[in-house]
Amino acid sequence: MIVKVIGAFIAIAAFAILLESPKRYLWCAGVVGAVGWLVYLVCEKAGADEVLATFFSAMAIAIVSHIFARVFKAPVTVFLIAGILPTVPGAGMYRIAYNIIAGNSELAAHYLITTLELAGAIAIAIFLVDAMFRVSHRGWKQNSLRYDGKMNEKQL
């Protein structure tokens, strides 16, 4: 399991390079990915199905990236786009295409529905966390450009 989590770290940090994230945030993106994958594995071990595990994992990823965005004062997408990658159902797409070609239209339909469910779960997780951080005390939008007096002092 530890090896897998390290694998996730490397995969996400490398993907962040492909997105041209700034160098100083690469390891953060890696950490986000590793946390997400850890949650996924734990959920799987606890017997949750794929959709639920993806939902929790996406939620963990979104929370950690929002926290990082506030700590480092960087856009949340720097962490989120790379971090969310392991949960994005890229494999599902392949399976749909494969089964359509192999003539298993039932399996293809099954995978299509699963893929849509996964995408929906990720979307809901991101929605929820966005909303959560909007209500939280540090201003409304993530990485808010709005300044309150304290933040200004800190920056100076």
Partner: peptide, 18 residues
């Protein structure tokens, strides 16, 4: 398949709709 996945479009579309 990973480098082809449109992660940015996917995440941004979700956040725009949100």
């Amino acid at each position: 398949i990973v480098p082809l996945i449109p992660g940015m479009a996917f995440v941004n579309s979700i956040r725009d709709i949100a």
